[in-house]
Structures are given as C-alpha cells and as structure tokens.
Design a protein around this nucleic acid. Structure first.
Length: 277
DNA sequence: ATTATTGTTGGTAG
DNA sequence: TCTACCAACAATAA
C-alpha cells in the first residue's frame, strides 16, 4: 500500500484519531511488529499523550508528552484502521492502540498481513530517520543538489536510484514509474545521464504524481481501482502516445514504461541518434 | 501450482 | 566513506 502519498494520507488520519489523545491501552499481538518486546512496548505507551505525528518519506514519527518517540513503517502491506475500543482483533491486526480524548474513546489498529512493517519506541531519532534525504512535501526538492547527487551514480539506472531513500525520501516503485513517464524519461537511462533540464522535468513529474495520488486518496472509496497512468497497465496503449506499454525488471522491481515517448538518455553524444518522440 | 506484490536491511565486495 | 549488488524477511491474490 504505502509510498509517500499513502503514508501522508495515513499521517493525516492518525492526527485526526490520536493527536491530543491519551493512550489508555495497548495490545501488541505480534512480537515482530514492535520494539521493544510486546510487554515493554505496551507499558511504555500506556498513559502517554500524543503531541504530534510527523512523516518523513515513508516513515512516521509520533512525539509524546514525555518527549519519547515512536517510529512507524508500513512496509509493503501495513495500514492503520480505526475501530471500536474493545472490539475483537481484526484479521492480521498486529497492534491495537486504544486512545481517549475528552469523552471519546476509540481504537487505532495496526494491520499488516506480510509483517514487514511495525513500530519502534525510541528516545531520539533513529539512524535510519536521520539518513533520509529531502522530503518532496516538507523541504521540497533542490534541483541543483539532486543533479549533483545523480551525477555520482554512474552505473545505476535513474529508476533504481529514485528508490534510494537517502536521495529523496518517500519515492517508491509506483511514484518513480509515474514520474518518469510524466517526465518522458526512459527508466533504463543511467542516473548520471540526466542534465539539468531532465532533472527539472523529473522533479515536476514527482510533484505531479504525488499530488495526484494524494487527491485520489482523499476521495476514499470513490477512488478508482488503479488511479495510476501507467503502473499496472502493461500491454495497454500509452495515454500520451498510444504505444503499447512495456514491463521490465530493474533492480529487482517491476517497471512499466512507454518505449514510444520516454526517451533513453546517455546514448550517443551531442544528441546524435536521438530521435524526436 | 505458479507468479507477482506499493519496501527495507544487512552483508559483501570493490 | 561511497557505490553496487544480493538475499532475506512473509503472506496473500490472481
């Protein structure tokens, strides 16, 4: 489920459900989903008041009244779901957090079939959090800095580099695919082959797809089954040029792209051999 | 039965 | 220190 837009959507939900609330009960059903171990996790959280919930890339950070922190990651299949305090556990529920704000009580459940995500308590920012690159929605993307960083990645394709969370925080497989399509850049292009002009188009593409996905999430159930322009649409015509979309693998991840209007960079020199789309 | 899946991490090697 | 590559983590849905 989650890349930057989904995690931001989740953060907004969590803020509505938990901000300013007191944690009255916690049940960690799965030892893999929490750190420290369930009993210690539960007792550390009970009685805490949620002061704020922030996001950086795909990571969430809760700050509590005593200054302690909780980091959360949804990995591939995690999400948070509201329900009634005291309700029986949901399918694949790993953690249930019961909160109370004024007279209102509710439960916030962490559900994760694949069990790759979870929550970690801490007293300071984790190394992983600190290493995250700029977040497109928080500090934005500095194109000159991005260009300089891409220039050092001589071997790797632009698609693979975009998934590096220390370069930009929050870009995942789908957002990378969509942004490259929007920018008209072939995902197989070496990262170092992008010039300022292409970096600029890519940054616009990233903002475009992030905002688009957020808008779709805001619709709730009204959203479409596949709200993306080309992700998951192999074999269908490109919405822009009608060429049949292809699917390949890059760095172990499925990549959809259009061979008709996404240009392969870094081939030939001085523009030789580059056909107009 | 086979294949694919929205992500990170830790080890290795250079 | 930085870059690149790979296996591991697990459970579902088509």
């Amino acid at each position: 489920m989650p890349e930057l837009p989904e995690v931001e959507h989740t953060r907004r939900n969590l803020e509505r459900w938990m901000k300013g609330a007191t944690i009255v009960h916690v049940a960690a059903h799965d030892t893999r989903a929490v750190k420290p171990k369930p009993r210690a996790f539960e007792s550390a959280l009970v009685g805490r008041v949620v002061k704020k919930i922030e996001r950086r890339g795909k990571w969430l950070r809760w700050t509590f009244d005593d200054g302690s922190l909780m980091f959360g990651h949804l990995a591939m299949s995690g999400w948070f779901e509201p329900s009634r305090a005291g309700a029986p556990p949901l399918r694949f529920e790993r953690v249930a957090i019961d909160v109370k704000r004024g007279k209102k009580s509710m439960r916030v459940s962490y559900v994760d079939a694949r069990r790759w995500g979870g929550m970690t308590l801490a007293t300071a920012d984790t190394p992983t959090w600190k290493k995250l690159g700029p977040d497109p929605l928080i500090e934005g993307i500095d194109e000159a800095r991005l260009l300089a960083k891409l220039a050092r990645r001589k071997k790797t394709t632009i698609k693979e580099v975009l998934l590096d969370q220390t370069l930009l925080a929050g870009v995942g497989n789908i957002q990378a695919i969509e942004a490259l399509w929007k920018a008209g850049i072939d995902p197989r292009s070496r990262a170092s082959s992008l010039a300022a002009k292409e970096v600029s188009a890519l940054v616009r593409g990233l903002h475009w797809t992030i905002e688009r996905t957020l808008a779709d999430l805001a619709k709730g159930d009204e959203g479409e089954e596949n709200p993306f322009m080309i992700y998951g649409r192999k074999g269908t015509p490109c919405p822009r040029c009608k060429t049949v979309l292809q699917r390949i693998e890059l760095g172990g991840r499925t990549t959809t792209f259009c061979g008709g209007c996404q240009r392969r960079l870094g081939r030939g020199r001085l523009g030789a051999g580059r056909a107009k789309a």
